[in-house]
Design a protein around this nucleic acid. Structure first.
Length: 420
DNA sequence: TCTGGGGTCCTAGGACCC
DNA sequence: TCTGGGGTCCTAGGACCC
């Protein structure tokens, strides 16, 4: 999907068309998506918002806080539609997926064009389709489709003029290949491997020796040999994390306890929505990477007595784990709770071996936890919570989202109103 | 003044086993 | 003076992705 977050905003807000638009990260920190007009202004991904804020006045730049409820729902609609077209379908990220197509090259091209049209018509976001024999090459074809408007948003590598393709491969830098990041990119260039064609023609054994089996696979994929397996289903994944930057620094132990309690409950409720249980709890916090002077990045792990997603237990353990790690006088700007070692079933209580020495009754705790979960499922996340998470007024450090749009597709109160 | 979040995979190295 | 071999499991850290 092209400029996906911006496209989602544009689908509902006509005033955003034909002008520079950016979508910001959490806390309105930095740029995570840009319209073509914003790219043309020279705004980079990851650029801090405060550095480009003046463009709002001088260049009619529109700004939106990220609205993941909207993007997630729009993505799900696109993915559902896409699933109808392929022999298989793997959702790779919120704005990207791989599908398997069969038939002649011309049939494949026609299907790709239909997909674009259907998504544009029924959902209203622009996409490009790249077709080839491996995932790495399909991503490359998609890249070509995006950068050559003449192709109409579809690029079937095998139908391209081979000389044109050759020119592209010897021109496009190796760092544009899927799987080549900053570090490997710099190293490759220092070895004289500067373009996609260079990497395609590199010695796979040398690449494995100097880098890893991962980059070796990329070389094979560039040569048309499939090496990258299916993307795993979300439900099989290994961890659930809730980490956030704060809008204002956290300095006191009390505030950090609020953070840990609320984040642990958030992580626990994600686990509940996936029907899973954790055996390992990790807490983290950190000072700003950009601040002068001393830094502090406390982190601790707690092995859980048995697979659990109990918000009371996790909240208590997270607070306790972080309690002695904070250094006095430091400005903490982020914190996180990570749950891992996931399993599909809760553990049995195992006699005294794993006794937490918890005073209150286990059954009662279980009941409170499930009541809290039921109520928030029915009346929304803000309706109830344990301790600080139950307060109507959010703490001062809570995320900043000053330019948020409506949740057009998931909240009755926020539907788009149309007058005709 | 103000700089995101949530993941995956691989590798090396340590602890431990017989 | 001379001190094995083959393995598993776990974790931390690095690199990458969007």
């Amino acid at each position: 999907m092209n400029n996906f977050y911006v496209s989602c905003e544009r689908a509902f807000d006509y005033s955003l068309r034909n002008r520079p638009v950016v979508v910001l990260s959490n806390n309105d920190g930095c740029v995570v998506a840009r319209s073509q007009e914003a790219k043309d202004l020279g705004i980079a991904t990851g650029e801090p918002f405060f550095k480009i804020q003046r463009l709002m006045d001088s260049h009619n730049l529109a700004v939106r806080s990220s609205n993941y409820e909207l993007y997630g729902d729009m993505s799900a609609r696109v993915m559902e539609l896409l699933g109808r077209y392929g022999t298989w379908h793997e959702v790779y990220s919120i704005d990207e997926s791989f599908i398997g197509l069969e038939g002649s090259l011309e049939q494949v091209r026609s299907t790709a064009a239909q997909i674009r049209k259907a998504i544009d018509k029924t959902i209203g976001v622009p996409v490009c389709v790249g077709v080839s024999t491996t995932k790495t090459l399909a991503k490359l074809a998609n890249h070509i489709a995006k950068h050559n408007p003449g192709l109409g948003g579809v690029c079937v590598q095998q139908l391209m003029d081979q000389q044109v393709l050759g020119n592209i491969l010897t021109r496009v830098p190796v760092t544009d290949v899927w799987g080549v990041g900053r570090k490997s990119g710099a190293k490759l260039i220092s070895m004289g491997i500067e373009t996609i064609a260079d990497l395609r023609d590199a010695d796979p054994l040398l690449i494995r020796k100097k880098f890893s089996v991962v980059l070796q696979r990329t070389v094979f994929e560039l040569n048309g040999q499939r090496c990258i397996g299916p993307v795993e289903e979300r439900a099989d994944r290994g961890q659930v994390m809730f980490t956030r930057s704060f809008s204002t620094p956290v300095r006191t132990r009390e505030a950090m306890e609020e953070v840990m309690s609320i984040y642990a409950q958030k992580a626990a409720s994600r686990l509940a929505s996936e029907g899973r249980y954790a055996t390992l709890l990790t807490v983290t916090a950190g000072t700003s990477r950009f601040a002068q002077g001393e830094s502090s990045f406390p982190s601790a792990q707690v092995r859980l007595p048995r697979p659990t997603r109990d918000p009371i237990l996790l909240s208590k353990l997270a607070i306790a784990a972080m309690a002695d790690l904070m250094q006095p006088g430091m400005d903490y700007v982020r914190g996180g709770v990570i749950l891992s070692g996931l399993s599909d079933s809760p553990g049995e209580k195992q006699l005294d071996l794993f006794d937490l020495g918890d005073e209150h009754d286990e059954e009662e705790q279980k009941n409170v936890s499930s009541v809290v979960q039921d109520i928030s499922a029915r009346f929304g996340a803000k309706s109830i919570g344990l301790g600080p998470a139950g307060m109507a007024q959010s703490p001062a450090w809570t995320m900043k989202r000053e330019h948020i749009s409506q949740r057009y597709t998931t909240e009755w109160d926020e539907l788009l109103e149309v007058r005709a």
